[in-house]
Design a protein around this nucleic acid. Sequence first.
DNA 1: TTGTAATTTCAGAAAAAACTGAAATTTCAG
DNA 2: CTGAAATTTCAGTTTTTTCTGAAATTACAA
Lengths: 173, 173
Amino acid sequence: MKLTSTTKKFILHWGEMGTRWGISRSVAQIHALLLISPEPIPADEIATTLEIARSAVSAGIKELQSWGLIRIVHHMGDRRDHFTTLDDVWETFLLILRERRRRELEPTVAVLRECAAEAASTKAIPATTLKRFSDLAELLELTDRWCDRAQSLSPAGLKRLANLGDKVFKLLG
Amino acid sequence: MKLTSTTKKFILHWGEMGTRWGISRSVAQIHALLLISPEPIPADEIATTLEIARSAVSAGIKELQSWGLIRIVHHMGDRRDHFTTLDDVWETFLLILRERRRRELEPTVAVLRECAAEAASTKAIPATTLKRFSDLAELLELTDRWCDRAQSLSPAGLKRLANLGDKVFKLLG
DNA sequence: TTGTAATTTCAGAAAAAACTGAAATTTCAG
DNA sequence: CTGAAATTTCAGTTTTTTCTGAAATTACAA
């Protein structure tokens, strides 16, 4: 795929943001490329466009698939897999939320609950530390619940909620 | 500071989670240690407790300070800086939100707006790509606004909102 | 001032992460 | 089946990130 200065700018930026959020630069770049490609593209085209090895693309695709962020499409008369992102960015957002919840939020809540329980049953850990474990567990559990409830929304529903921001904050007066 | 198996578990887990969110392991560990320390501790104690070089602690502290996550405290008769986290985890949450918004969300929205504008004014970029830029910009801008509104809440207010989850989702019927 | 403790800086080392290219494996049309 | 295309695996390399320890700087008590 031919990149323009605009598409290049987006891909590079998305790659940088990836690194800030724990995603490797080239995986994020692959995602960026697929996000803006007008149609599904095969792995070798990703490799030549981003100037990375075919094998790195293979690994990157596997990673993106583990997040559920890309789909495989086939074309008549072409044995190669062609890759594409979902077409709704809100659905993408929900997927990322779901995975981060599963991979990071829930395990962390579990660890914090364990730590709180252990801290409660030993004199070796001061009360202030126990309180900290509980406070963190509470915060992350509430965050977890928000993420969970979001999962029950359709992409369009999530978008509607996002637009309802003002009303939500007024709930607090 | 003497670590128990419980506090060790928490520090190691927090360090791992750091790496998943783009924070270096040892910086996250320093943060974890300060989170659970009953009182402020000096840099050299952080170094010996976590078994890392004093200079690494210095860099880590600088990083945490750039996020606003730690405070310096002084004790009579001790020239060393002692470090501590905020005591409200909801305030910590707000700080992280604020910084991520400033460092990542806003620059990304800006780039997407630029890309959309450029895509709109050249035939070299297909309409589908322009749409993708706009959709992403819209999503991130709405996210940005939520983060912004959260900033106007007190830590206690944020906690109240977090507990209001069910009501918020019922707004959608 | 002066000397010492505390902190920071920084060049090089070490560790971790990511990438390459060749080989192995899988897939599938003929 | 057979062979070529497509994909994956993986050992070794490169790149990036992080860490160390010595030296420089800063802060401050005497």
